[in-house]
Simulated assay, not measured.
Amino acid sequence: MNDTLKSHPSAGAYLGRGIYDVAEVARLTKCSRRRVEGWTRTGAVREPLLSGELDGLFSFWDLLSLRVIGELVDRGVPRAEIAEGANYLAVRLGTHRPFAHQGLATVGRGFFADIGSWVDVGRGGQQAFQVVIEPLLKPITFNESGMAAIWRPHLGVWVNPEVQAGAPCVDGTRTPTATLAQLHNSGLSIEDLSDDYRLQYEQVQAAIDFEASMAA
């Protein structure tokens, strides 16, 4: 992804915001590429649920928004209601990426409970929203503006848009998990990687486990 970022003519304006292509969004959200493209590309008869902030590429907020969209789709919320909800929440929360805002947990709950089918989707009445959305928000650290700042998708791993263009790294470091996993797969032991990168054994193991879970 760093090569993609460096080669993009507008990349300078997006430094510190994370940068992902469709393939990486699909990998990190555990959705198929076809589904992500279906949500983010204009079709013959419908508008996208979300358009990438950087000419077909996606920001950190886009990535987390698509996690929420994917969960709503999986729960059976109609596409039109997701779009309506996004527009409503954008106004209420004052951001163009409401699904990456901390306020989604409160403002969104009332809205999705009111629009009809959402209540039935979670099989728990009005408690459905907490059951579905709060686990998605729990591993996220929000900034003072209420917007997502850091995502920890796995114990010992962080996705920080200000570090390595938002690539998953060992928590608190700039070491990409993919680098460690690739080196381990090529034959280097966890002990060797710990020494080479000045990491604890558990940190390297967490990185390898995370990458394995993404490939599963």
Rank of each mutant, 00 (worst) to 15 (best):
residue 111 F to S: 02
residue 153 P to L: 04
residue 119 V to R: 11
residue 97 R to W: 05
residue 170 V to C: 06
residue 212 A to P: 00
residue 13 A to I: 03
residue 147 M to A: 12
residue 45 V to P: 00
residue 148 A to N: 09
residue 165 A to V: 01
residue 103 G to M: 08
residue 82 I to M: 13
residue 183 L to Q: 15
residue 9 P to I: 02
residue 195 D to G: 01
residue 207 A to D: 06
residue 15 L to R: 14
residue 15 L to I: 07
residue 25 V to S: 03
residue 211 E to C: 10
residue 117 S to M: 05
residue 113 A to R: 06
residue 149 A to S: 15
residue 106 T to W: 12
residue 74 D to G: 13
residue 120 D to G: 13
residue 56 G to C: 06
residue 174 R to Q: 02
residue 95 T to A: 06
residue 159 V to N: 00
residue 196 D to C: 04
residue 179 T to W: 04
residue 29 T to C: 12
residue 78 P to K: 11
residue 207 A to E: 06
residue 116 G to T: 09
residue 48 P to C: 09
residue 12 G to V: 05
residue 57 L to K: 06
residue 160 N to M: 02
residue 106 T to K: 09
residue 98 P to F: 11
residue 45 V to S: 12
residue 147 M to R: 10
residue 176 P to S: 04
residue 61 W to C: 06
residue 53 E to Y: 00
residue 160 N to D: 15
residue 167 A to S: 13
residue 157 V to T: 08
residue 30 K to N: 11
residue 92 R to P: 01
residue 181 A to Q: 07
residue 194 S to M: 04
residue 105 A to W: 02
residue 101 H to P: 08
residue 13 A to R: 14
residue 152 R to N: 15
residue 15 L to S: 06
residue 60 F to C: 02
residue 3 D to G: 03
residue 63 L to H: 00
residue 205 Q to F: 09
residue 62 D to N: 14
residue 82 I to D: 07
residue 138 K to I: 02
residue 154 H to Q: 11
residue 138 K to N: 07
residue 102 Q to G: 01
residue 161 P to N: 06
residue 163 V to K: 03
residue 31 C to Y: 04
residue 185 N to V: 01
residue 186 S to L: 11
residue 19 I to L: 15
residue 75 R to Y: 13
residue 164 Q to I: 04
residue 119 V to L: 09
residue 121 V to N: 02
residue 106 T to V: 13
residue 142 F to P: 06
residue 181 A to L: 03
residue 132 V to P: 00
residue 142 F to G: 09
residue 103 G to N: 10
residue 91 V to C: 02
residue 48 P to V: 07
residue 214 M to S: 04
residue 85 G to C: 06
residue 212 A to N: 13
residue 65 S to G: 14
residue 7 S to D: 12
residue 65 S to C: 11
residue 25 V to E: 06
residue 106 T to P: 01
residue 171 D to R: 05
residue 76 G to N: 06
residue 101 H to Y: 08
residue 174 R to M: 00
residue 12 G to Y: 07
residue 180 L to F: 03
residue 56 G to F: 02
residue 87 N to S: 14
residue 31 C to I: 00
residue 59 S to I: 01
residue 47 E to R: 13
residue 203 Q to C: 05
residue 202 E to Y: 10
residue 21 D to L: 00
residue 42 T to N: 10
residue 104 L to E: 05
residue 43 G to W: 08
residue 84 E to T: 09
residue 95 T to R: 09
residue 29 T to I: 08
residue 46 R to M: 11
residue 38 G to Q: 12
residue 192 D to T: 14
residue 58 F to H: 03
residue 125 G to F: 08
residue 124 G to Y: 09
residue 31 C to M: 13
residue 48 P to R: 08
residue 170 V to Y: 05
residue 180 L to P: 03
residue 215 A to S: 15
residue 94 G to N: 10
residue 109 R to C: 10
residue 82 I to C: 10
residue 66 L to K: 08
residue 152 R to H: 13
residue 91 V to G: 04
residue 99 F to P: 02
residue 137 L to Y: 07
residue 168 P to R: 08
